[in-house]
Amino acid sequence: MFEARLNNATTLKKILDAIKDLLNEGTFDCSDSGIQLQAMDNSHVSLVSLTLRSDGFDKFRCDRNLSMGMNLGSMAKILKCANNDDTVTIKAQDNADTVTFMFESQNQEKVSDYEMKLMNLDQEHLGIPETDYSCVVRMPAMEFARICRDLAQFSESVVICCTKEGVKFSASGDVGSANVKLAQTFNVDKEEEAIVIEMQEPVVLTFACRYLNAFTKATPLSNQVQLSMSADVPLVVEYRIAELGHIRYYLAPKIED
């Protein structure tokens, strides 16, 4: 028996919004430690890794490890049927071929349940080792989303250059060129407005704007985003989900043709 409850459907809606543009389907691996999903986009350029800890749920029970392959478009249709302040419970029997989403209104007067067929997905799982990155940048998630959106107008790629002075995002194309420089902040009142750079070695890396913009769909989940970079390895874009877990996106850098 698997049962996971969140007192507010908003978080789950936001999580799905953060992955459904990149992934058509995904396997939710459930164990007593929580729920994990790892999946690559169709073109195998990026990878999404979602971790939701069991202690972040309002109720969590998982008697046996369970892998639930879900069509994320179908899941999105179902979650649209939940009000933001509904309690959402995800339920499945052991070895079941369906999952049930139950939504309960705050006053308990409306209870709806939606059953969805599970899929057998043959997905490759990649082992991602713990890595010390040359540069780790923490910045407001909204600012990162704004920069990615703005620079995508100029080019398909953005160059991220990180030094101890700051981080620079650049794009150039037919229209011209664009550069956005952010300096590390000191003495900001609010932690969520801070720009913090931890640098061991400076890095310059090029990434596809299309994917960065897809990652920023996670912006509503977190005030801050963390970018981890080293030469010639995938960028990690991490959004923490308060008291529940995190979503990490891995993106292979572009190299000279």
Partner: peptide, 12 residues
């Protein structure tokens, strides 16, 4: 050129 993410990590 865009590299494949699988070229960086081993299959678990």
């Amino acid at each position: 050129m865009q590299r494949d993410i699988r070229s960086f990590y081993k299959t678990a």
